[in-house]
Amino acid sequence: MSQDIATIRVTRYRPEKDAKPFFQEYKVPYRHDMVVLDALNYIKAEIDGSLTYRWSCRMGVCGSCGANIDGEPKLTCASFLHEFKGRTITVEPMTHFPVIKDLVVDMQDFMEKLVKIKPWIIREKETPPEQGEYKQSAKELERYSQFSSCINCMLCYAACPIYGLNEKFLGPAATALAYRYIEDSRDQGKEVRFPIVHEMEGAWECTLVGECSVVCPKGVDPMLAIQKTKILGATNAIKSLLMPRGGR
């Protein structure tokens, strides 16, 4: 197979040496089946061992290889080099996050948000395992399964201008995950999660830009989850106004 040469411009930033980030350009020979991550690996192995970036699975599952490619948040392992043929490919760290080194960003904020929404099934009272599993029908599964495909890649946060303006915003993936548990028939933690997703910087901060759903590599559609969260919250509020007792 013939080999083409890709020109890649990568953000370099080593806080111990550089006052500011800068671009470094590399030439990488590539085959048709190679992705941007392969090019980064080639650079690290053959040209410059100090280039720093995250990756693990190479197959869009682990969610660790996100970067801004030509300005758009993408998984580097899912972006083919041949799609950029004839152009210089610019690879930058994901927007809105603090940069630790080169393409590696600080994930702390997102990790805290994930824990905050309690991404596990909450039961009022756990039944012992001997009594069997909590059953669920295919129909009940369908209500939330789309929102359970998130791989925590944070691309949606890099795409969200609201998060860019206000990092306190709970944001797309965390709200989608909260909604995933709220809609799970086995879960009984609505009372706990509702205040979290409806607080000042929760779902209502979203103004429907919709770019989170455009960039999501897993078809999660966080924008939809956030609006559904709003609808649930609003109907709940009306219900409790009309029927202060019961009526849940």
Partner: peptide
């Protein structure tokens, strides 16, 4: 180290 973060530019 001083925090480096790309903020939203007015022309975003």
């Amino acid at each position: 180290y001083p925090e480096l973060r790309r903020r939203l530019s007015p022309g975003w």
